[in-house]
């Protein structure tokens, strides 16, 4: 029982991200509407971003904004500051996700202008003619 509790506390955030990721994955492959597919892709990206940010956490550590003069005099305790690298990577990943969403929405608008619908079946029907 004790072991199970320790396991749950240690892993529950990863399970939450896996569930979130699978919601996005199902929306991407199971839905027939292109906008719903796009929303699924955004959920997928959010799950990945959350997973990376949570991998930077250390117990009892502070944010990665230090006191400059104190650090220059005494140095810094590595275990007392959270890992800043995943934050940087995910900052750029968020911007890429905004760019991807913008381009995808533009292409969806163009598809709607051309075919008059965003449902995959109807587009395939019109393409088959």
């Amino acid at each position: 029982m004790e072991d199970l509790l320790v396991l749950i506390v240690a892993k529950v955030n990863y399970w939450a991200y896996v569930i979130l990721m699978m919601i996005g994955f199902y929306a991407m492959i199971g839905k027939r509407n292109l906008v719903k597919k796009l929303i699924g892709m955004n959920i997928f990206q959010t799950a990945i971003i959350l997973m990376f940010v949570s991998s930077g956490v250390k117990h009892g550590a502070k944010i990665p904004i230090l006191n400059k003069y104190e650090v220059l005099e005494k140095g810094v305790d590595v275990a007392g500051v959270v890992n800043p690298l995943p934050h940087v990577l995910m900052l750029t990943a968020i911007v890429v996700s905004v760019s991807v969403t913008g381009v995808a929405l533009a292409i969806l608008l163009r598809i709607y202008r051309e075919y008059g619908t965003l449902e995959e079946d109807e587009i395939l029907e019109k393409l088959g003619k």
């Binding site: 913008g102 608008l109 202008r113």
Partner: peptide
């Protein structure tokens, strides 16, 4: 750059070009 692109994205997507 980010400000300009954000505004431009909204203008173009909001009015369909």
């Amino acid at each position: 750059a980010v400000m300009s692109i954000m505004v431009s994205l909204f203008w173009d997507l909001g009015s369909a070009g």
